[in-house]
Design a binder for these strands. Structure first.
Lengths: 217, 217
DNA sequence: TTCGTCATGTAATGGGTTACATGATTAC
DNA sequence: GTAATCATGTAACCCATTACATGACGAA
């Protein structure tokens, strides 16, 4: 088992779940839709794709399309398109549902959140709550350490700590709102038109909840 | 040149600047005072210490203290105490003043900030402003990408982006306040003179900023 | 024809972690 | 005497990056 784990694998599977793509495009989506929190390079993406193929989660579809492009933009010749296999899909579901101890860390959480649109409500709740309690643990530690060392620290270090804690607290509040919204319910503001895509995903979640937002202030 | 760069080296030099320590203690301070933003393991710390010694920034002082401990806590026997050399100190100053392109990234910034207590005012200003403009660039990109892709994203992805941007915006406001405080706060800039090597650093700034948050990358 | 973007990859390196191995000292 | 913590280290691996190498295609 290559244990080729990590966020990249997860994100690739998640993106390919929506629709097949080739590496280049995948990378762009990784760095826009998901890229808010992290950027990946080809040097990691391509090798990752290979191992995913080997493991059977993906299949390569060489699109050696040599036709004259119908439209200049749409017809661009794509070399290798990756498509999620049934096994891959299954694997992705497992990853989503799995609650390992590091599943609540910053980047893991963000990656999971990014795919909430394809996640069932109960899993969403577990993820949000898991994250929250992880953050609360962290706050505990910070507070404890602050109490222990308050005197010995200079103002800047203190300010840094304070700022860090405040950030965490804010995220907790954010999670609280999201959780409440999830709980409250349906809302179903889901623009997601389910057209095309021979992809019959029927594990489904009717919902897409519109999370709370908070005015900047 | 080993290019042994990175935050760890920087943080180690910074901590040892305050006072000599041995590895174990160093690591604890790394994960408390500074550890709010990052934790290091022995596996990275000890090798790092070695190369720093080789480069001449540190010297090892074997404290084979075999005396009966005077006080139970204070007298603990320490194996290897590391002390910053003059060259090391110089090097640290250079690192502080240096404004490389990655100097403004999350962790680099946090590390520098943590040592503001021993940093001259002008350097502090440069760091704060550098960080701010880095964040503003980031905001630009986020906004641009948001405009480009707004329609194609589901509500959760959108919420994630929004939350991310808000975090960055908050940090910008925080920086604004800090910068203002620096500007207003006259001095205590801890005169660069350091005529004597006497390192009695009494840095005090009553900064009073009531700043806000920062994001989880 | 040259430049920018699309498109795919590899080798070397980086900066760190985990798990392991070892042993002294203190607290119970 | 045994467990916790102090204290130092090494080897194997992990996940990713950088820099490089290659090449097709469209637009100026």
């Amino acid at each position: 088992m290559s244990k080729r784990s990590g966020i990249l694998e997860f994100a690739v599977l998640g993106l390919l779940r929506e629709s097949p793509m080739h590496g280049y495009e995948l990378r762009k989506r990784l760095n826009t839709s998901l890229g808010v929190f992290r950027a990946f390079s080809y040097g990691s993406l391509y090798p990752c794709l290979k191992t995913l193929v080997i493991q059977g989660w993906l299949i390569e579809e060489s699109v050696v399309d040599s036709d004259p492009p119908a439209t200049p933009l749409a017809g661009r010749r794509a070399k290798i398109v990756y498509r999620l296999t049934a096994a891959g899909k299954e694997h992705f579901e497992e990853l989503l549902a799995h609650s390992g101890p590091d599943a609540w860390e910053d980047e893991h959480f963000a990656a999971r959140f990014a795919f909430f649109g394809q996640t069932s409500k109960d899993v969403r709740m577990r993820v949000l709550e898991g994250r929250r309690s992880r953050l609360e643990e962290r706050l505990e530690k910070m507070r404890a350490s602050l109490v222990r060392t308050r005197e010995r620290l200079d103002d800047y270090t203190l300010e840094l700590q304070r700022h860090g804690m405040e950030s965490v607290e804010r995220e907790v509040r954010w999670l609280n709102e999201l959780i409440e919204t999830e709980r409250a319910g349906r809302s179903t503001t889901r623009p997601e038109s389910e057209h095309a895509e021979q992809d019959t995903h029927d594990n489904n979640q009717e919902n897409g909840g519109r999370p709370e937002n908070r005015g900047t202030a």
